[in-house]
Design a protein around this nucleic acid. Structure first.
Lengths: 269, 269
DNA sequence: TAGTGGTCTAGACCACATA
DNA sequence: ATGTGGTCTAGACCACTAC
């Protein structure tokens, strides 16, 4: 076969095979997937390995294209998907940046509670009070949620979030012990900002997505006291499992939300 | 200027101006936007005008490219966005289809309540019972939500949804009177399927997105009786505004959900 | 076999940010 | 002036579906 000046897909097929072999060498199924998906996977690995840290810029599309030996358009499509999944943020003229919970604009990305008078647009809670931070052994349900074994070491944190002096959210959260070694109530109290930002900068753990299960419940007497409501008050129970890369669960969080002055907002599409 | 064999962006700019003029003729701001955004807008108009009906296929990318005098890639990017917004569904080898609430696969798209034991994956409620369907005048809050004036005619529907014989959802919904003229309790009772599918086929109204405000509340005595719970039971209050094309609100729905055997599931990313 | 959407490339120019 | 992401085109081939 003559080497025509333009036969893009031949080049493509070669790269595809090469990338497939790379995946095969990693012990993954060499199942067929488009080139840009494979490139996306490679970029994901670099994100996960910490080659580029949260807030930093990743190499330009041209650089990545050269590195992976594919066209710039293919890299672009890979980054398009990463951007749609909120793993990176593109900024025209500046570059593509690793997403972070520490940025002002998308702070408290996972907190859907908003004040009823929507003028103060989705700002974070004004006051945060740590109740305690204990080292425990995982019970069966905690272990299941975090993909651990019963009895594995976990950290339990409890705190209250208040808006304008009104305690509104009571949170109880569990973290796997190993990745969060060294986390104390004091460090949590001293940190001023979203807890997920602290996880990124201090422990290198980046939450990329989460699932929430929501119910209406009544508080027990201790919860009622902490939230300053009667035990007959209906409250939102929000159970969240947050995941880092590779769908690895890294946090179980159980929140009780007062919804007398706030509401949980959800956009459906 | 000589007509070079390849000067794509010149062609592009011409088309851009042409499309811009078309928009201008419609009285819209001729503000700059990329060609594919303008094409997206034109496709959206055809969807809205009913040129292609829910469930039908729209013209192929090549046909649309010829129609709008742009490249197939530009049409593709426009359809990409419409697909991401769930307005159309692509099927490889078959075509691109207008999305519908009547399809088996995405039925009850807006219903986030799921049974606690996730084995029965997000199926619809088993039994639906219409309580009543009245013609009323819009109160101030109903009017505001539906972008009507106080006193405008609206329809109010109330119904109960049950799972395995257990009444679980009590819904009260308001619709603008004009578009839904002729809707009766009988027609609702006879229809077997999602209410949004009936809206599409019988009234030509397609809901494309919705916003929900969620709270924890206690029922009043009537609500408690209909749901077969004590008035002290905490319930989820889900207030939804559903929109058709052009962000036009077409339904206000207030639901009370029992969350003793079900939960509201939300994916955050 | 033909038609559809899906992938990939190559190259050009635009819009934005920075120096 | 340079480099980044953003847009647009043209053309090729792949994967799926239907006839």
């Amino acid at each position: 076969m003559a080497s025509n000046p333009a036969h893009p897909y031949t080049t493509n097929a070669q790269s595809q095979l090469a990338a497939g072999d790379a995946l095969g060498a990693l012990g993954l199924t060499p199942a067929f997937s488009p080139l840009y998906q494979q490139i996306k996977g490679l970029i994901l690995q670099s994100l996960q390995s910490g080659e580029w840290k949260p807030g930093e810029s990743i190499p330009s599309e041209m650089d990545l294209a050269a590195r992976f030996r594919v066209s710039q358009g293919t890299v672009r499509k890979a980054i398009d998907e990463l951007s749609a999944e909120n793993l990176v943020v593109r900024r025209q003229g500046k570059g593509t940046f690793v997403a972070t919970h520490a940025e002002q604009q998308v702070q408290y990305r996972f907190l859907k509670l908003q004040p009823d008078n929507g003028d103060t647009q989705s700002e974070g809670p004004a006051e945060r009070t740590i109740i305690d931070c204990k080292r425990l052994r995982a019970s069966a349900d905690i272990a299941r949620a975090l993909s651990l074994r019963s009895g594995d070491p976990v950290l339990q944190v409890r705190r209250v979030l208040a808006y304008a002096g009104v305690p509104t959210i009571l949170e109880e959260l569990w973290l796997p012990g190993a990745p969060f070694k060294g986390l104390t109530a004091e460090r949590l109290s001293n940190y001023n900002g979203p807890m997920y930002a602290l996880f990124e900068t201090e422990f290198g753990v980046r939450m990329v997505r989460a699932d929430e299960n929501i119910r209406a419940v009544n508080p027990d007497s201790e919860q009622a006291e902490l939230l300053n409501v009667p035990i007959t008050a209906p409250l939102l129970s929000v159970e969240r499992v947050a995941y880092t890369y590779n769908d690895t669960p890294m946090e179980l969080r159980r929140g009780l939300y007062r919804t007398d002055t706030h509401h949980y907002r959800n956009a459906l599409s």
